[in-house]
Design a protein around this nucleic acid. Structure first.
Length: 295
DNA sequence: ATGGTTGCACAGCAA
């Protein structure tokens, strides 16, 4: 029996309370089944769950305060919800001491094990946060590889804001970024270490250069098309074989009078998982020409 | 004009 088709997306929403209407509006327009969110920037009690429920999505959230916060919305069910991963490093730079931050949440939805991941930013190469970032990625690699050893056929999506631009072409001006976080060799090596067992299933459908998922709010970066590719969906081998389509939905980075408030500084990224037989999900043509840079 | 933008705790950080 073929597995069900499922459309899985990831989106750094930059505050879910400021963006819930916009996010749910997109979920419905884009026909998304499962959405991994990052930077919800709220506690569990503050999460606007009713907005999602009203549209037919259940939500699981992990948030402690105004920082970080990860969530998963699903209209294809929830199983085996897990907060954090085994060995997830804690952060001791905050004023409340040693805490395991709200940066990882997993659930099995529609047969796919979806991880919503918010990799630490790193801030600066000489900042303790940078070391924390590398330790965090190494611990994730260890745990993720153990899941595959346990079941090589497991259907796992590592989705989120990785805060790494793996290739030079993933930033708009490498000369400007060289030596800064997101592009250093240790960060890229940490990403590649995870890519030895999980595959970026979006890049083949949305190749660069000039294809980004994040644009800084300042300096007119978005209309100037000066961004970074730092949001990724990495799939386990068995899941990667089922991917029939993927895209970065740049349109959702736009503002405009028809939208509800300012956009996130990230665009959503989605993949279509086919049923595992020859008849995959019918793929809608990508929305028309993207000459419009409207903010 | 040495900035430029968001969001949160509405003040100064974090991104």
């Amino acid at each position: 029996m073929a597995a069900p088709d499922v459309r899985v997306a990831t989106w750094n929403v930059n505050s879910i309370r400021a963006r819930a209407d916009r996010v749910v509006d997109w979920l419905q327009r884009a026909d998304v089944d499962v959405l991994a969110m990052q930077e919800t920037k709220c506690s569990d009690a503050q999460f606007p769950a009713m907005t999602f429920l009203g549209a037919g999505y259940e939500v699981m959230h992990c948030g402690h305060n105004q920082w970080n916060g990860v969530a998963i919305a699903s209209r294809v069910g929830f199983e085996d919800v897990q907060t954090g991963f085994e060995g997830q490093p804690s952060w001791s730079g905050g004023k409340d001491g040693h805490t395991v931050e709200a940066r990882a949440l997993a659930a099995t939805c529609g047969g796919v094990r979806v991880w919503s991941l918010y990799v630490p930013n790193g801030r600066a190469v000489d900042d303790p946060h940078y070391r924390y970032k590398l330790e965090w990625l190494a611990a994730l690699r260890d745990d993720a590889q153990s899941w595959l050893r346990r079941d090589p056929e497991s259907q796992i999506a590592l989705a989120g804001d990785w805060n790494i631009a793996p290739l030079d072409e993933d930033v708009w001006n490498m000369d400007l970024f060289r030596g800064s976080t997101h592009v250093t060799e240790p960060e890229r090596a940490a990403f590649r270490a995870i890519e030895t067992s999980f595959t970026d299933v979006v890049r083949p459908f949305a190749p660069g250069p000039g294809t980004y998922t994040y644009w800084d709010y300042t300096q007119l970066r978005f209309p100037r098309r000066e961004g970074m590719r730092i949001d990724f969906i990495l799939a386990s081998p068995a899941l990667a074989r089922r991917v029939v389509h993927a895209e970065i939905v740049r349109d959702e980075r736009k503002g405009g009078k028809d939208r509800i408030g300012p956009p996130s500084d990230h665009a959503p990224v989605l993949v279509d998982i086919g049923g595992g037989d020859e008849a995959g999900r019918r793929v809608e043509p990508t929305a028309g020409a993207d000459a419009d840079n409207a903010t």
